[in-house]
Amino acid sequence: MTQQSEIITLVLSVAFIPVAIWTYRGISLPHKPLLAWALGAMFGGYAATVIEGFIAPILFNYVEHLAYAIAGVCFATLGVAVLRSRVNTEGENA
């Protein structure tokens, strides 16, 4: 059964997509595509959470958890990339 909070999350995430894309295009980050992957995975997770209430609950439950795993790994990798880039930049400026 789909909960109200899940619908709110999905609607919010759909509404945020254009803003997120516009903002994403103006951001300069090392390994920037990882951010797109992370955000895409989060959105996929939200969508799967709602869909599992209607069709193929087991499959979409897998998809939901897989999506969050991908998002977590992408965010962590992105963080490492930013950290390494900063260390390199400070090393060059030193």
Binding site: Y68, G72, V73, A76
Partner: peptide, 14 residues
């Protein structure tokens, strides 16, 4: 659960 552990580790590291 493997996915959940991976997500927890990933977000935790982030």
């Amino acid at each position: 659960h493997v996915f959940d552990i991976a997500a927890a580790l990933g977000f935790g590291a982030a």
